[in-house]
Design a protein around this nucleic acid. Sequence first.
DNA 1: GCGACAG
DNA 2: ATCTTGTCGC
Length: 241
Amino acid sequence: MPSADLHDWNLAPREAIALQTRLAGYVERADRLEPVRRIAGVDIGFEQGGEITRAAVVVLAWPPQASGESEPATLEPATLEIVEQVVHREPTRMPYVPGLLSFREVPAALAAFERLTMTPQLVMVDGQGIAHPRRIGVASHLGLWLDLPTIGVAKSRLCGRHTEPGPERGDWTPLVDGPDDEVIGAVLRSRVKVKPIFVSPGHRVSLATAIDWVTRCLGRTKLPEPTRLADRLASRRGERR
DNA sequence: GCGACAG
DNA sequence: ATCTTGTCGC
């Protein structure tokens, strides 16, 4: 893989696209992960009309801690315990351009990761993985730079075609793209009667494994816990005092 | 030329 | 993404 110092984050669209095309060749779509004990969720938010970028990383312990029998039975899914969380703020450097999201968000995410005291074995990113025009969305790009397994979890579609997934939680249909109908992700029904989410391999994770982990991390909401908690932190919610 | 378009 | 109140539903 190219050394990080060769990566310029302030590129003109034309150069950014050329770099993505080159980096896409390094994205691994086969499973290559260590036993999972910690799963991280990453998301980026903005302040002051977009002047400031906020990167949030939340690390959760796996497997879930068994719900104490003396605790108020909180229904089904066991709670994923937060073992560490970090928020990094910095001036926003690039505008949002569909297809070039990673150049706007990855720098801040990397800075946040540098402040973590523990390393996760798996990372869930808010955005697409290989379900991208050049097969290198923000999740893949971040995974490449962190050299960690990543999964893209997006709330909407960037590219590709698909049919409507079944109504039950866990139902999914393939997201395909290109003239050869290449499978680039899955449209997953994470909650009954709720718009599905788009799951795709980021780096070092197969589609089957990506779907499996996202499903295993589903709590009571539409988004899997790692992404949901990072979302809350990045966008200021959940900060009660 | 006319849409589509992660966050 | 963000600006924002109340409101429908489990």
